[in-house]
Structures are given as C-alpha cells and as structure tokens.
C-alpha cells in the first residue's frame, strides 16, 4: 500500500499507526458522545421532566378526586413524550456531527456505521433505565399515586425481556426515523424535507386507504394479536433498519453544507 509511503512526512515516533476499520467507526461513536449535553444530559432531563409532570398531575388527580385509583392516563404512558426528542437528537447527530466528522476526514461509510452503533448503544442505555424505572413504578404502586409513566399498554405486566425489547425498539425506531430526516436535510436541504414529509404523509394515508378499501382492518388487528407485544416490538426493528439504510443512502453522496 502507498499508505506506508505517505505516512513518512510529518510522522512522529509516538504515532500509533493508521486506525483500523473498527477504530475508524468507534471514534465516530466517541464523537457523538464528545459533548454529552445532547446525547445524554438533555434526554435524561426530558425523561425527568416528563416524570415530574405526570407524577404531579396524577397526585393532583388523586388529591382532587379523593380516589386512590388509576386515572385515565394509563392508556398513554407518559414516556411516549420522550420519543419525539429522539427524532430531534438523531436529526442533529446526522446533520451537524456529519459535517464535523467529514471535516475530520472521516468517510461517509464510517460515519453511518458509527452513528448506527451509537443508536444501538443509546437505545440499549435508555432501555435499561426505563425498564428499571418500570419495576420501581410497580414496587412503589405508581410512585405512591398510581401513576403510569413507565408502563405501556404494549407490555402491560410483561416480563424483563419484553420490557427491555419494547423500550429498545421504540427508541431505536425513532432514532432511525430521525436519521432519515437529518440525512435528507444534509443532502437536499429544506426542499428535501418538504418532499420527504409529503411523501411520508402520502404513504401513511395511502396505506390506511388501502387497508380500509380492502377491508383489511380485521386482518391487521388479527396480526397484532398474533405477533403479540414482543412480536410487534421485534417487527418494529425491521422498518428501523430500513430507515437507517435509507439515511445512509442519502448521506452517501451528501456534501456538508457551507
């Protein structure tokens, strides 16, 4: 390889040699965590805020009604409001960190691989935290006020594995969706986002129309029942992977904006 030759000028004795392919991917992961404000601190704060709001509201409900029972909020777990931020986070990671990574002479391929790895780590981390919180919620009878913040109707009273999988799937799905928006923005700018947004609405409405006109809703319902909560969470990983790949395809010819 000519790489040996070009190392010579400017090389120092302490140089560790060129980075291996895993190192090249791993440093992208580290880059995403170089400043933990967006990747760790902000999402945890959001989770905390959601927790406090739901806990206080539920406490008020219990106090006002005098009923020490679960109110209607159980149908939508408070944590669902955590998910949109994961889209925002992924958009930022794919937009600005992409420009910075390429500025540091990274390839687009390494950037995508590193970002996917970061998504997995990120989702696993949140999954552990939220699963732990869901057990705490159970043991404290909904934080003392019958609040349902970390329980979703999806896993109900399901076991450890199901909870871990559910949280993981939803977070990683959101991040992969966000990465498509981020990548499309980098590649085609605002126009791309309009087209993508429009296309997504059309695809969604089209699917609903297709299902409605063909009277497939029964089958759809049957499918949900058949796969069960664990099956659904697992199936969610498929579109997530698809979105991740679409994001990479958009980035493949993208140029950092100036």
């Amino acid at each position: 390889m000519t790489a040996v030759g070009i190392l010579e000028p400017g090389a120092r004795n302490t140089a560790t040699g060129p980075a291996s392919s895993f190192e090249r991917v791993w440093r992208i992961v580290r880059l995403h965590y170089a400043n933990r404000l967006n990747s760790v601190i902000a999402p945890l704060n959001i989770a905390l805020l959601i927790f406090l709001v739901f806990w206080i509201v539920q406490a008020l409900v219990v106090y006002a009604t005098g009923q020490n029972v679960q109110s209607g909020q159980g149908n939508v777990p408070g944590l669902i409001y955590f998910l949109p931020y994961q889209i925002v986070f992924a958009v930022q990671a794919t937009n600005l960190t992409f420009a910075y990574a390429l500025g540091l002479s990274s390839t687009r391929r390494d950037f995508s691989l590193g970002t996917w790895l970061m998504f997995l780590i990120q989702s696993a981390g949140f999954s552990f935290i939220f699963t732990a919180m869901s057990y705490l919620e159970e043991w404290t009878t909904g934080w003392g006020v019958h609040a349902q913040i970390f329980h979703t109707p999806l896993y109900g009273t399901g076991g450890l594995g199901l909870r871990l999988l559910t949280f993981f799937s939803f977070v990683v799905f959101m991040q992969c969706v966000g990465s498509v928006f981020g990548a499309v923005f980098v590649r085609w700018h605002a126009v791309g986002l309009y087209v993508l947004g429009g296309a997504m609405v059309l695809v969604l409405l089209g699917s609903i129309a297709l299902i409605t006109f063909n009277q497939w809703w029964m089958s759809v319902g049957a499918w949900f029942v058949a796969v069960g909560p664990a099956g659904f969470a697992a199936w969610l990983l498929l579109p997530a992977a698809l979105f991740a790949v679409i994001g990479h395809l958009a980035l493949r010819r993208a140029t950092p904006k100036s």
Partner: peptide, 29 residues
C-alpha cells in the same frame, strides 16, 4: 497521494481540511 480521495479512508486519514465554514455539533465548545 496517488489515490482517489472520495470515501477512501486510507487516503483521507492523512488529510486535515480546515475550512472557514466548518460546522460543529450543537453546543460544542
């Protein structure tokens, strides 16, 4: 260095490109 630079890690890792318009991640210091 004799090779095509686009998406070529073995060349790119020997390049530093400092540009006036460099973007940094949000809230970077």
């Amino acid at each position: 260095f004799g090779q095509r630079p686009a998406e070529n890690a073995s060349v790119l890792q020997h390049i530093a490109f400092i540009k006036e318009s460099q973007k940094y991640p949000d809230d970077f210091k």
